[in-house]
Design a protein around this nucleic acid. Sequence first.
DNA 1: AGAGTAAGTGAGTGATTGATTGCTTGCTTT
DNA 2: AAAGCAAGCAATCAATCACTCACTTACTCT
Lengths: 204, 204
Amino acid sequence: MALRKSSDERREEIVQAVLDLAAEHGVKRVTTQAIAERVGIAQPTVFRHFKTRDAILRAALEWIGKGLMTVLTPVLAGSGPADERLRQLLTRQLQFISHRKGLPRLLFSERLHLEDPELKAVVRRIMDAYTDRVATLLREGIEQGRFRSELDPEETAQLIVSLVQGLVMRWSLTDFTLSLGEQGEVLWRLLGPALLSHGIERTR
Amino acid sequence: MALRKSSDERREEIVQAVLDLAAEHGVKRVTTQAIAERVGIAQPTVFRHFKTRDAILRAALEWIGKGLMTVLTPVLAGSGPADERLRQLLTRQLQFISHRKGLPRLLFSERLHLEDPELKAVVRRIMDAYTDRVATLLREGIEQGRFRSELDPEETAQLIVSLVQGLVMRWSLTDFTLSLGEQGEVLWRLLGPALLSHGIERTR
DNA sequence: AGAGTAAGTGAGTGATTGATTGCTTGCTTT
DNA sequence: AAAGCAAGCAATCAATCACTCACTTACTCT
């Protein structure tokens, strides 16, 4: 009666179930039972495909990290004005996150930061990689003369990432009623004047 | 043998224990058993002083919220240049948080956002109150001609709060190795140019 | 001193949940 | 078609935890 699927397929289904469930109810309620029900298998069967629950969460995070980088690489590979590209980077990032509500739930779950050090490492790796990309963009912009030369690229990149993080956090806290897509423009209205060298955005 | 203390005293002790434990191990491990051990009473006794565990967490959050506002009111009540006061506000806020590691753990715990709606309301109330104060400061600064007149006070205040939140989040994620105190200045190096009307910070 | 009140406790309960085990069943390969 | 393997399941375990209960003990007030 029960359909047989390959472990690869099941793993994919399980990861998707985790993201959906996390978005709906938070990581805490992503029990192996809930996962099994969503996928349509018995609870113990979940452990056929992943050794532990944490391994499942890790896989979900990595799945998202990969997707994020895929979205961002084209922007980073471009060669236009750095300010335009940074703006695009932030917009796309927010857009990407905006239809993956499971991400903030995973990112901000304490099970993630406090229980499994390996999970924490995964998070940090993703964040550091992202910060690096932003810093590079900032450096390019400074060389192009479009960003203020006094800017410290690393320091500023960290702040920008923190800002995005804070926004995502707020979005998650307000049950996703905030439109994350629009926040891209809002964000730029503050960041533009802070970064641009010639007050381009300051004309009235 | 066991010392008797008034319920008020015990409640205070319990709240402090919660903050300490949360700072050390995260909210998830703040079990009633752990609280009891830290305070030096039996586990059931905890329920003499609070009806439920969530009530304990709520009390801890409110304790912090009260403390935060106490720290900030003097700055808000002042009448100097708004930019100076905003700078001070942010510095003091970060300073205050920097020796209350339990706060981010509570704020970012999902038990808090997802389980108990009342707890969530407490968080949101604190955040909204804070955002309001910042917006007011921004409005004053715009009237004083020190902040750019194009600024939308509410929108900008939300971004600033998000930025602080992101920083605190990062600080918590990196196991508090980041010096939150120093981040005040770093923060201002980005915010100054973004807010100030006359490019005061832009001289080379 | 004696009664009333409130803090304190040991023992236990029920609910949840991650993980294990022993067995069955379906797919693939030769 | 038979063997081998991987996916699937029912039943169950072991651990964790918030919370309850019946009872004791200390302080306070008259």
